[in-house]
Amino acid sequence: MLLKITNLRVYFKSADGFVKAADGVDLELYPGEILGLVGETGSGKTVLGLAITRLLPKTAAVSGEVLYRGQNLLALPEEEMRKVRGRQVSMIFQNPLSSLNPALSIGEQIAEVLREHQGLKRKAAWQRAGELLELTGIPAKWIRSYPHELSGGMRQRAMIAIGLACAPSLLIADEPTRGLDVTIQVQIVELLHAVTKGVSPPRSMLLITHDLGVAAALTDRLAVMYAGKIVEYGRTGEVFRNPRHPYTRALLDSHPSNGLIATKGFSPSLINLPPGCSFHPRCKKARKKCAHEPPLVQRIGMDHGVRCFYA
């Protein structure tokens, strides 16, 4: 197992109380596997990604365990953690325009990672940066361009080239297709597939997305997140064919290809979560029990689990 997250909690202190962005998350990621983390905005997906690489602000209280190759990342000294970032675990952020440094050329932004982690000299690092650009579909002659000179799709390719620079075993991609044209989204999905499944041995990726189409195209397994908890997980095909949690079903129904059926109500505030099952106020199947007893995850098949009493 490459990554094993156990009982991860991320709380932010606010004036009104604790914001429970992740509330007891368990996740497993196998080598060479792409795991999709889906859920609506505010469900805690991004926070989870940042918690793994310990990039959350200091105000976040993080507890639990994040085992990467058997090593608890949450317990590593900061300097050790720094050496994991970018070398073993890379992140690809959404909105590459703001995530790339506007004052540095993309070549420099790739080369510096190689110089830091692989000790390459300037010239060798730039040489390799050019190759990485070519690999992600950017002509190497653009190496001296600045982020603002590239198109949205090109910027995301450059972002991916940075993430790949040190050949990490795990990529964490946070909404990598958000804000891109649909045709460009397809290209980025293909590129992400090529740099994970297309290399040998295949590379693992945690894909954080709210786009079910992207998740269906790329992932092996899915974890559905709602209000800081994983409510359902399973093989991607299985979850799509046979969604067992009412929220997963609602999420799938809301997809345009399934008729764009909206779920009533709003996702709850992470400060005042409803008692019992967090989803019960919006759930069509909710019964009395749901309102005061929090459901636990039940295994309902080979590698398929759901956090619901009546699944």
Partner: peptide, 13 residues
């Protein structure tokens, strides 16, 4: 800003 988070995620000093 976001790109500082990126720089941290790259494992820079």
């Amino acid at each position: 800003l976001d790109y500082i988070k990126t720089a941290k995620a790259k494992g820079l000093r």
